[in-house]
């Protein structure tokens, strides 16, 4: 939760949270209810899984092209944006320089996401997902 607290200290960050890659836990701070934070965690996990799947396809055409493992994603809305890095997310206002600041902090604090991300994301599928994937 330290990263979440650091993010929430930045003016313009509406809410921030952390979810388990396995999808069974989440925590958050900011202007969300428990139910909305649960929904946000599910949405962020699903999108992270999706972009990782896409990066695997891209990588199969151009190995080591620099796309995987995916570190995160951003949805830019009209007045708000959602940033996701690793298993952390932040809802932020579209203020000048805030997006760059939040992404810099999230990348620095979360660190490089490693290749085992997909194994953890797929962990609920059952069976030996590591063997199936690699």
């Amino acid at each position: 939760m330290r990263i979440v607290k650091q993010l929430m200290a930045i003016p313009g960050v509406i809410a921030a949270g952390e979810y388990a890659y396995r999808g069974d836990r989440f925590s958050y701070e900011g202007a969300l209810t428990d139910e909305f934070a649960r929904m946000a965690s599910i949405m962020c996990r699903a999108n992270t899984l999706s972009v990782n799947m896409q990066s695997e396809i891209v990588d199969s055409f151009s190995e080591n092209c620099g796309c995987r493992p995916v570190q995160g994603w951003i949805v830019r809305g009209n007045q708000m944006s959602v940033c996701a890095v690793g298993n952390y997310f932040a809802f932020i206002e579209n203020r000048d320089e805030l997006l760059n600041d939040v992404m810099t902090i999230m990348r620095a604090k979360v660190g490089d996401v490693q290749d085992d991300l997909l194994v953890n994301l797929y962990a609920r599928l059952g069976g030996d997902t590591k063997e199936a994937l690699y």
Partner: peptide
């Protein structure tokens, strides 16, 4: 999200980014 939560400010979407390793 906007319909369920009553929060506004996301629509219309102004872009999407995927952050790869490099």
């Amino acid at each position: 999200w906007e319909a369920l939560t009553g929060q506004s400010g996301f629509q219309p979407i102004k872009g999407f980014s995927v952050v790869g390793l490099e």
